[in-house]
Design a protein around this nucleic acid. Structure first.
Lengths: 147, 147
DNA sequence: TCCGTCTCGTTGCACAGTACAACTTGGCGC
DNA sequence: GCGCCAAGTTGTACTGTGCAACGAGACGGA
């Protein structure tokens, strides 16, 4: 396989993956779409951030994030805290309920991935993880293009 | 990074990727969404098939495929041919216009990937491609689960 | 101090993609 | 022929999304 062929393969396989991801996005959890799961996960990782940060990181419109956040707050999974130094800003935080559901969904996803990756030798797993990080890091948090 | 950590990273990065893929799906071509691009690609690969086959292969409802097909036909990218042996069946075929646009979109996607992967050393490209193939091959064409 | 301009977020609107259910049309077995 | 099955279409509803317009607050220069 030469470089040209490898790029071709990466394109094709990424497309296949994207299609399947979309197909299974709705079946994640009765209460959590793939988007809201992702947003919750980011809140956990970051320890709380602004809606604008979420929008930038996931290439979503701020209005989309705003609505998702509203829904998540209505479900009691996150809470908004006014930033005392800047009253325009709302810092979003997971609630205990949110943390619980997030852990639950993460665990079931993790189990699916573990099963799927069970036969992989550890060095391959590590390289694959590293490649994905490198791929997604391209162009910074708002990367566009060959998604 | 140990294996547990690597699986975790793969899960997270695949999710980020899926999210961004969706974000850029609409900007593929003014005339072609990611879905219709995929369907067109399948028609090219298979050399013509039924709407029901497309639905089954991509885990889509037949009504969804029906509407996509209607749109693609209206745009002159595909044509329906009655199956002479079974009048319920319409076999879908690419038109020349459809083949042209498909090639064009494939090429622009390929260029985007090439740009994105330009800085990668060739051995990494090849390994990454191989990992993706291995990942997607899991469970065959209708694989479900950790998308 | 006040005005222009920026940022953060919400809301109104429109649209794509999707599923489910009901239906039409056509084939097939008894 | 009758009943059932298969292929596709259409009605309806919902979700996720973006863009544009807007409101509220911050910030800097005249």
């Amino acid at each position: 396989m030469d470089a040209r062929e490898a790029v071709e393969t990466i394109q094709r396989e990424m497309t296949v993956f994207a299609r399947r991801a979309r197909a299974s996005a709705g079946r994640l959890h009765p209460e959590l779409s793939l988007v809201s799961y992702t947003l919750l996960g980011h809140l956990e990782d970051s320890g709380g951030c602004r809606a604008t940060d979420l929008a930038a990181h996931y290439a979503l419109d701020k209005s989309t994030v705003s609505r998702q956040v509203t829904a998540l707050e209505r479900s009691g999974l996150i809470e908004r805290r006014q930033d005392p130094t800047d009253h325009r800003v709302q810092v979003l935080h997971l609630t205990d309920a949110g943390r619980g559901i997030l852990a639950q969904v993460t665990e079931s996803r993790r189990a699916a991935f573990r099963e799927r990756l069970a036969a992989w030798p550890e060095p391959d797993l590590e390289r694959f993880a590293e490649y994905l990080v490198r791929y997604n890091a391209w162009g910074g948090s708002g990367a566009r293009g060959a998604g």
